[in-house]
Design a protein around this nucleic acid. Sequence first.
DNA 1: GATGATCTTGAATGATCGTTCCAGATCGAC
DNA 2: GTCGATCTGGAACGATCATTCAAGATCATC
Lengths: 188, 188
Amino acid sequence: MARPREFDADTALDGAIGVFREHGFEGASAEMLVKAMGIGRQSLYDTFGDKWRLYRSAVRRYGMGEGSAHIEALRSGARAIDGIGAMLRRVVETADQPCLGVGSICEFGASRPDLAEVHAPLARTLRDAIAARVRDAQRDGDVAANLDPEAAAEFLIANIAGIRVAGRGGAGRAALTSLADMALRALR
Amino acid sequence: MARPREFDADTALDGAIGVFREHGFEGASAEMLVKAMGIGRQSLYDTFGDKWRLYRSAVRRYGMGEGSAHIEALRSGARAIDGIGAMLRRVVETADQPCLGVGSICEFGASRPDLAEVHAPLARTLRDAIAARVRDAQRDGDVAANLDPEAAAEFLIANIAGIRVAGRGGAGRAALTSLADMALRALR
DNA sequence: GATGATCTTGAATGATCGTTCCAGATCGAC
DNA sequence: GTCGATCTGGAACGATCATTCAAGATCATC
């Protein structure tokens, strides 16, 4: 007995994600968000609360989508090492667009507990998936057996961040590919 | 025939650097800056222009100091590879504090030409110094001879950024040391 | 057709933003 | 001592900020 919502909350959230990726939290204005999300101001506040809660929702959705894409790439390829390479290749190909995960860590670090609560499970899931794949690759003989899989996973995540910072700074495809190759090299 | 400046511009700039490191450009207010710089509002605008020019000055000074520290560590140690290790070790030890270089790239990317003009020479100087040291290490037989020194330098810079992002995200000393070790491993 | 929740839109809120103006105190050079 | 540039600090500027209020339109349900 009421008018149903006309917009899709996730679609609107995707618009907010685009703004936050490009401008960060502090650099994003409510007007930018309303325009990019394609909804009214009132709908924004009714649906997502205030700007900070919207930001956290955006980081969560972005992180889940990005994490899924990473893990999907990770599981592709015949050998585990191919999956790891595919994951890095995907990062290189999308490194021209700013990363909301890296951006939010740079902007807030670990200073906001409620934001850290969003990051933590996403990071853990990704790290576990990568570590599992590293173990597979070790069984295949493609990754050095004396390497700690968790340390290797954290190294790969740090290099994903490094590639994205480099891309955000203007590095070209060739330079980023070289970074990915060097990261893989450390696993041999 | 005038009253001389009572404060040291570089000391004041260091105060601004502290604020920008922690809060970024958009997150830093004029009031924060005035307080941290220890000077009056009027002196701030007279000496440094507006907030954006102050930010660029802060990035330049920070980058010069940080670059010098990197290069000094790079040149320490008997062997070139020891210098490279010392540089990474220094990054690990200081990774609990946010990096203004990484922060400004994440916040603005390459979208502001006048900021890119500040970054470019700093990045080039550091990359050249690292590449030269990599060549030395190759002569010593401590770095694989088939590695492109410039690619290795960019890889090390990307890993410095990765370590700092990880540190900003709350990673501990042990985890960061592991990242540095893995980066060095890629050079062998 | 009536109901009522949601929509859109524009105006208004008080707060804070970066910046400037101003007045009075300070102090080195003439 | 006088001059003039700089200091400090507060008041004020218009602009923009996030957020809320208000009014009218829309539309699925009863």
